[in-house]
């Protein structure tokens, strides 16, 4: 069976649209990065919180943020790669050390927690990165009344 030129064009158009959709799913996937300056204990090892860290994320429209020991800030990013610009001070009055680090965010995770002391200590991603799991709202299930049609037919 010979496939006409029109059919080829249609197949090409559908393939292009599917490819575009796939590309959009990859480049547009949004993640929330929670940066923690908290002491982390894992597998018997401890990474102490740092005195102060100035953080920003490349490509983000958000302003740089400062976090002190036991604090958390969040950034939103698109795509699976994020480059963090960090400037940390181990103790009060110490020198500021600038560091640029790139991390890969797993596609399936909406939010990730990045423990900065572990990251700056050069640990692997398995150590400093964990998934941020949102606790689902299990409150009153009748809390939201759905309004579908203000002109709905009622019993009159």
């Amino acid at each position: 069976m010979k496939i006409s030129r029109t059919t080829w064009f249609r197949i090409a158009a559908v393939a292009f649209i599917l490819l575009l959709a796939g590309l959009m799913m990859i480049i547009g996937r949004g993640h929330t990065i929670y940066l923690d300056d908290k002491t982390l204990e894992k597998d018997g090892k401890t990474w102490q919180a740092l005195y102060r860290i100035d953080a920003s994320v490349a490509g983000s429209t958000q302003e740089p943020q400062t976090l002190y020991a036991r604090e958390r800030v969040l950034f939103t990013v698109m795509g699976q790669k994020a480059t963090l610009h960090l400037q940390y001070m181990e103790a009060k009055g110490g020198d500021k050390v600038p560091v640029d680090v790139s991390i890969r965010i797993p596609y399936g995770m909406d939010g990730v927690i990045v423990n900065l002391p572990a990251l700056l200590a050069g640990e692997s991603q398995d150590v400093f990165l964990s998934e941020f799991i949102t606790v689902p709202d299990v409150g009153d299930t009748s809390a939201e009344v759905v309004v579908t049609d203000e002109f709905a037919v009622t019993d009159i």
Binding site: I17, A21, L23, M24, M25, G28, G30, M78
Partner: peptide, 18 residues
């Protein structure tokens, strides 16, 4: 729901709507 943001989100929504 798929957390596709920004312009890519708009383009994908358009593709789904077609």
């Amino acid at each position: 729901d798929w957390q596709i943001w920004g312009i890519p989100g708009m383009v994908l929504a358009m593709i789904i709507s077609i």
